[in-house]
């Protein structure tokens, strides 16, 4: 029979484990947030909804060249309690036409994959700075779209760069203008 005191003990243990995890994440975040802001790409900015909570922020990317030039793209980044054992969760808040981002904002970036065997996925040696530069790289033409999320966009990119450019532009005009 499980006694009340045992149950209370378990609750306490669970609670202290949770508190402890949060504090580890927060300790890591103090350093990583600073590093991230110091090394931010020129066309990116970071906004904290609550200045006392470093775990939730909006990253804004304004590409200065390439297909998405002229657009303003926002990402909601959430660093969960289990960080840095798991990657931050990332959602794109701006609708766009992109092989690696769906129209509802799911982002495909190898770095953000939690279980990957190829060595390109998440690993606790990665930092917030790597995530920011990874998202930034989604808007450079150097990227290869081998593992697309938006299949239609990826096929279009492969078959007709001109059609792709026009569709991207159309979406930028409709959804990504400040």
């Amino acid at each position: 029979m499980i006694t009340l005191s045992q149950r209370l003990k378990k609750q306490q243990d669970d609670r202290s484990a949770a508190v402890n995890r949060i504090s580890i994440r927060d300790k890591l975040l103090i350093k990583e947030s600073q590093e991230m802001s110091q090394l931010l790409p020129n066309n990116c900015s970071v906004f904290y909804e609550n200045e006392n909570d470093l775990s939730k922020f909006i990253l804004t990317v304004k590409p200065t060249e390439g297909y998405w030039e002229g657009g303003t793209f926002k990402f909601a980044i959430n660093v969960t309690e289990e960080y840095n054992m798991v990657p931050p969760t990332v959602k794109c808040l701006t609708r766009l036409w992109h092989p690696n981002i769906t129209e509802v904002g799911e982002v495909c970036l190898s770095l953000l994959r939690q279980h990957s065997m190829d060595g390109l996925g998440w690993s606790p040696i990665r930092r917030l700075n790597d995530v920011v530069w990874g998202l930034h790289a989604l808007f450079t033409d150097l990227l290869n779209f081998d593992d697309p999320l938006n299949i239609e966009a990826s096929d279009m990119y492969r078959n007709s760069k001109e059609e792709f450019r026009m569709k991207v532009n159309e979406y930028v005009m409709l959804y990504a203008k400040e």
């Binding site: 054992m85 798991v86 939690q114 060595g119 996925g121 690993s123």
Partner: peptide, 15 residues
Amino acid sequence: CCMSLWVKQNNRCPL
């Protein structure tokens, strides 16, 4: 401590 948490997810050296 750090490594035992990580290998639960992925039994590879992070480096």
